[in-house]
């Protein structure tokens, strides 16, 4: 085996030429296009990063705005709730005041109605009592309708003020109404007693009035002296009504 030095030299040159050829036409263009694509990819990535950062910033801004809106909404809601609470309280107080007023009025009306009812009942009771008394007294004998009342009438006239007593009968006969017509002896007794009390004779005009039930009534122009059951019942009824 021998070495062909010409061939060795030529192959050495050939190898150098081939290295240059492939470097010039294969490796350099391909590596350049790879680097160019990488540069573009990096640029795209940088742009994407920038866009992402911008989007993040916008998102943060939107979040802040949303938080601000939420806070504002919460504040508005709180204010509205406070207003509603105050309005509710005012309306409640107003309603309670109205209810209290209505209740007071109702109670007053009820009290008035109750008083009216009681007055009506008292009046009815008084009337009933008067009717009962009248019915009972009408069963008395006729003598009892005037007997005993003459003294009372004379005593009442005696209690009149002196000027009033003095003027009695100055205008003519004094009207006297009796539950039944007085008998002559009863009339004489009445006139005698009055003359004794007044110190002078008093002319009388006696008439019958069954409404008096029992008793007498002196009806002068300046004074009225009642001594009969009708007046007593009326006074009792009035007293009952007044005390109630």
């Amino acid at each position: 085996m021998t070495i062909d030095w010409w061939t060795l030299g030529l192959q050495t040159v050939n190898a150098a030429i081939l290295i240059w050829l492939l470097a010039r036409f294969l490796f350099r263009p391909v590596s350049k296009i790879i680097e160019k694509r990488q540069a573009l990819a990096h640029a795209d990535l940088d742009a994407a990063e920038a866009a992402k950062a911008a989007a993040e910033a916008e998102r943060a801004a939107a979040e802040a705005e949303r938080a601000e809106i939420s806070a504002s909404r919460a504040a508005l809601l709180d204010a509205a709730q406070a207003d509603a609470g105050r309005e509710t309280e005012r309306l409640m107080q107003q309603a309670q005041a109205g209810i209290a007023e209505e209740r007071r009025r109702a109670e007053a009306a009820l009290a008035r109605a109750e008083a009216e009812r009681r007055r009506a009942l008292d009046a009815q009771a008084g009337q009933l009592a008067a009717d009962i008394a009248e019915r009972l007294l009408r069963r008395l004998p006729d003598a009892a309708l005037t007997a005993g009342f003459i003294d009372g009438l004379v005593a009442a006239v005696a209690e009149l003020p002196a000027p009033v007593r003095d003027r009695l009968g100055s205008d003519g006969p004094v009207p006297v109404r009796a539950a039944r017509m007085l008998l002559p002896e009863e009339r004489a007794t009445l006139e005698a007693r009055l003359a004794e009390t007044l110190g002078r004779t008093l002319p009388l005009e006696i008439s019958e009035d069954p409404d008096l039930i029992a008793g007498l009534e002196l009806d002068a122009t300046n004074a009225i002296v009642r001594n009969h059951f009708r007046a007593d019942l009326a006074r009792i009824t009035a007293e009952l009504t007044r005390h109630d």
Binding site: T7, Q11, N14, L18, L21, L22, F25, L26, P29, I33
Partner: peptide, 27 residues
Amino acid sequence: AEPVVVTWLIMAGLGAFAFLATRKLSI
């Protein structure tokens, strides 16, 4: 010698392929 000629042929083939394949490189 024969190895030199074959090497030339290989060089020509590789050079032509490299030239043609890298003429229109794109992204």
